[in-house]
Design a protein around this nucleic acid. Structure first.
Lengths: 202, 202
DNA sequence: GTCTATATCAGGATAGAC
DNA sequence: GTCTATCCTGATATAGAC
């Protein structure tokens, strides 16, 4: 059925991008990966750029999903009990560390995200979607920081979130390029979180 | 003369990469940019990959040069007077902020660096050179941190340097992809520096 | 060392049948 | 909606003259 194939193509694109990069994405390899013909890809996505755009969207949605899963079923509405800040800290750490796992889906997401980010330097069409997704991420993190340090002015929360997410993108690229072992990356992230939280508290 | 042309090609490559990215580097555009024929590029660098390798080297050398210029002529040997730590802080901030300037050469270096870093995820050949250059950078920053906070154990300095340089790479990509205004990026870097320095002091 | 001209080929995209 | 077959551009790389 139509929708299934569409999805298969997008999932395939995420895998191929993780393996070869955006620059290495070949329509034919994608076709094979997804088990369809190249023509069908063009039928559904118009052209190569269309595939990239929709893959970005697909990736972001998927990341949203597993990121919000990390909050756990406990406080879906963001309401904290007396031990709120404690939990919120854990939750923040958790959600940031999700990016650093050696699981196929995570690697795919990180790789594709990094690739699309890097591509956007030279392909302005991607910028808008990317900017939106980035903002959402930053606000989510700022929100968690707000739970940990209530009564911190919003701009300070946002700035801290920008630093944490920015660091994550930097470390992620290093990890994926083999320049930084996974557990060391996780260590650095944890330290960064505690450093930022402490800063907000002083 | 031979050496001049070689250099012209590498300078041209840095410019073209800044404009189009590694993935967008076309041998013919490079030839035009450098004012030579494509054949000459192959004569000097064997193939496209050779051009990329040598350009990375070229870029790193150039970055070393302008980064160490930032230390200023005052303390070339790293020896500080009584006001050492103060100056060292300035110097660290300066040296990190160098990456965030809207000057052609800086943009070229940042862009090329980010591109090569991203390419390394899929092209293992580049990894070794990149790792070496990264380590040098990290140690330089750790060294400056050591001037600011003497008697800090080396591993803590290194970790802080890894976070700062990692953040820089992340923010740099955001800046270049138009997702982060230059002055905001500089602001975030300054805050990160003071946060890390404070952490080392506690 | 450097150029002009060209071989070669990969890969994006489409036509047309089913 | 999906496939097979194919076109054709654009890019890497080389041959051979100077």
């Amino acid at each position: 059925m139509s929708t299934d194939r569409r999805r298969a193509i997008l999932e395939g694109a995420a895998r191929v991008i993780a393996r070869r990069g955006v620059r290495g994405l070949r329509m034919e390899e994608l076709a094979t990966e997804a088990g369809v013909s190249t023509a069908l890809i063009y039928y559904h996505f118009k052209d190569r750029a269309g595939v990239l755009r929709h893959t970005l969207e697909f990736i972001s949605d998927r990341a949203d999903r597993y990121t919000s899963d990390a909050s756990g079923p406990g406080h879906p509405d963001g309401h904290d009990g007396p031990d709120g800040p404690r939990d919120a800290l854990q939750e923040l750490e958790q959600s940031l560390l999700l990016e650093f796992q050696d699981l196929p889906e995570v690697r795919e997401n990180s790789t594709a995200w990094g690739e699309l980010r890097a591509s956007a330097i030279f392909e302005p069409e991607l910028r808008e979607d990317l900017a939106r997704a980035t903002l959402t991420w930053i606000y989510d993190v700022a929100d968690l920081l707000g739970h940990i340090r209530p009564s911190t002015p919003a701009p300070a929360l946002t700035a801290a979130a920008e630093r944490l997410t920015g660091l994550l993108e930097g470390l992620s690229t290093r990890w994926l390029s083999g320049a930084l072992p996974l557990d060391h990356a996780r260590e650095l992230v944890k330290e960064a979180v505690s450093t930022e939280v402490e800063r907000l508290g002083r």
